[in-house]
């Protein structure tokens, strides 16, 4: 078994209303915050032990479902 830790974030070109709201609040609390981008974190346990194959599968999963390539970027790390 391999575990993939996946991060999905909005592309830099996309305005992130949630991030902007959190940033405004932290700024009003006087923290030295430049900007915040809010994304998603996911853990996928694969029943595949070959790292090369697991990477291919993870790219496919991310492109097809976990991220929407129109507005999001993804990255992942494999462990285990």
């Amino acid at each position: 078994m391999l575990k993939a830790k996946v991060t999905v974030t909005l592309k830099d070109s996309i305005v992130d209303p949630q991030g902007s709201a959190a940033e405004r609040v932290l700024t009003s609390m006087k923290y030295p915050v430049e900007s915040i981008r809010i994304g998603k974190y996911m853990e996928v346990i694969l029943s595949e032990n070959d790292k090369v194959k697991a990477e291919e599968i993870m790219h496919e999963i991310c492109q097809k479902l976990l991220a929407n390539p129109v507005m999001e970027d993804y990255s992942f790390e494999l462990e285990g």
């Binding site: 305005v15 949630q18 709201a21 929407n68 129109v70």
Partner: peptide, 17 residues
């Protein structure tokens, strides 16, 4: 329809959240 690629584009949270 947009998620399935039948129409272009995507949806974000409403600008005012």
């Amino acid at each position: 329809l947009t998620e399935g690629g039948l129409l272009p584009g995507a949806f974000l949270c409403n600008a005012q959240l």
